[in-house]
Design a protein around this nucleic acid. Structure first.
Lengths: 220, 220
DNA sequence: GAGGTTAGTGTCAGTCGCTGCCAAATGACA
DNA sequence: TGTCATTTGGCAGCGACTGACACTAACCTC
């Protein structure tokens, strides 16, 4: 068994065997325990031993499910990202790229909540989101993940538009888009839940700035 | 003494005291030993003990100069980045932002070589550049550094243009620019030295794509 | 339903990154 | 030259992670 074998996705399709179900449960227990402990004690203040003990498995078993401590902390985040990527791939081919990305974000937000709650309570995910920004090591790992996501998105956009993978334009577009989304992510925490509709509108307005941001003269 | 006290810059101004000079020499020796060993054995295949031994200091002393193993591996990279940031700040205020960034890159390339060679031979820096892309942990740390650089650049651009720090446009511009520069960085390695002029032209052409990349229709 | 096969788990020992603590050495400066 | 502030080394210890091996439990025949 390798650490990255079991998908990060929620138990959408319940697996046949007892073995598989047991693994799913163990994995979810580890994620829940980890997020709970980290929310209470911080990332660096939480040891893998504690997480494993809270999920009632040995430390060695923890490392059979997650390659490292970062991975369990970012596992829900990872789920959100692949959720979004799937939404992008589902957009009709006639949509221009930026529109597809923008629509996919808003669409994926409609359904991601349920997928998260299937694994951990939402407050733990929100708390983790804050912790990631504040913990250098986690932030670094997260940025690497996002860079990989940018690569995937770039490829997908190039494919949709029938461009060569060498063409720089998809990459630039995705970089600008991701820059906006990272800023949006930063402002999350406080605003969401309280006023999700305002937040969605806010995001849309932000994305509308991508065009104007490249105009040569801003001082009007 | 704290780990981040001594600047990463080359010994441009030679310090007065013997103590300072000795610290500088120790630091440079650690960087050289580290890059040499990592080039030969890879990042994960090189232990801090080895680096310290090669520089003829104790492991404990290593950690007085660098907060962690990543920091010594990225120290030259960090020098290059602050070199570029300084070049941006030096651009005249009437230049439009994207022009300033673009000119600053090309200008900083003219002088960075000497600054690097003052610390390590160029081949070690090139080798390190490759290693960073290939080593997940290093890449993560590097991306976090670059994200901080993006923050600085965003602030500087907003300042130059007299915009509020809330305005999303500088951030988007910097994100697009950085996306291009990361792609350029990836293609470095092989092309440079062999044909630096072609490479510079290539980069300029890449940067010219930032405008067109946001046009709605690419399929012409 | 008893057999062997396969896969997941716990234990243990070990490496490596990194830190706190104290004592020894060394440049700075009167 | 003697004091003072810094820098250094050694040591002990923690936490993340890994390899090896033995044990147990699910699975798959016959």
């Amino acid at each position: 068994m390798h650490a990255t074998e079991l998908p990060a996705e929620p138990p959408s399709k319940l697996p046949a065997g007892l073995r598989e179900r047991k693994k799913r449960r163990t994995r979810d227990a580890l994620v829940r325990s980890a997020l709970e402990l980290i929310a209470r004690q911080g990332y660096e203040g939480t040891t893998v031993d504690e997480i494993a003990a809270a999920a009632d498995v040995s430390q060695r078993t923890f490392f059979r499910y997650f390659a490292n401590k970062e991975e369990v902390a970012l596992s829900v985040q990872q789920m959100v990202e692949s959720h979004f990527y799937a939404a992008v791939c589902a957009r009709p081919a006639e949509e221009p790229p930026l529109t597809a990305l923008r629509t996919a974000v808003l669409a994926s937000w409609d359904t991601i909540g349920a997928a998260i709650t299937a694994v951990v309570p939402l407050r733990l995910h929100v708390s983790m989101h804050r912790t990631i920004q504040e913990t250098p090591q986690l932030l670094a790992a997260q940025l690497r993940r996002l860079a990989e996501q940018e690569d995937r998105l770039t490829l997908e956009i190039a494919r949709r538009e029938g461009l060569s993978p060498e063409d720089p334009r998809p990459r630039i577009l995705v970089a600008a888009f991701s820059g906006v989304m990272r800023e949006v992510g930063r402002r999350w925490g406080g605003l969401m839940e309280s006023d999700m509709d305002t937040f969605r509108r806010h995001t849309a307005e932000y994305l509308d700035q991508i065009g104007p941001a490249l105009a040569e003269n801003w001082r009007s």
